[in-house]
Amino acid sequence: MSLSARVRIPTEARAGEVIEIRTLVSHPMETGFRVDSFGRRVPRKILTRFSCHYDGREIVSMDLRPGIAANPYVAFRFVADVSGAIELRWEGDEGEVLIERSHLEVIRA
């Protein structure tokens, strides 16, 4: 299936609040270790990197290996400190890139 993402990103938070980002991407994560019914090795095709930029800072990056399940799910948390753009990015071993953008508004109490 073509590369597409489901993301859950809050759009508003209080300053200092811990918020969670959840992501799910359609990708086979073909390991490169499997053989087909003719005994031929199925070539590796995986996403290799996931990252999150928040207000221009790369706060999270993740190396993805064949041991990550098909249709990769990743969730993580961070402290909302400033209003800013959120950019989630997935990179594949065939050069494909998927980007999801959002904005987080931080409310000062």
Partner: peptide, 24 residues
């Protein structure tokens, strides 16, 4: 696993040192 390295998760503040995923 055929490849023992599963994943590495790099953290910069204000991210928390915690992640969830699904593995094989």
């Amino acid at each position: 696993n055929p490849e023992p390295w599963g994943t590495s998760f790099h953290i910069q503040p204000p991210a928390l040192a915690e992640f969830s995923t699904r593995i094989r």
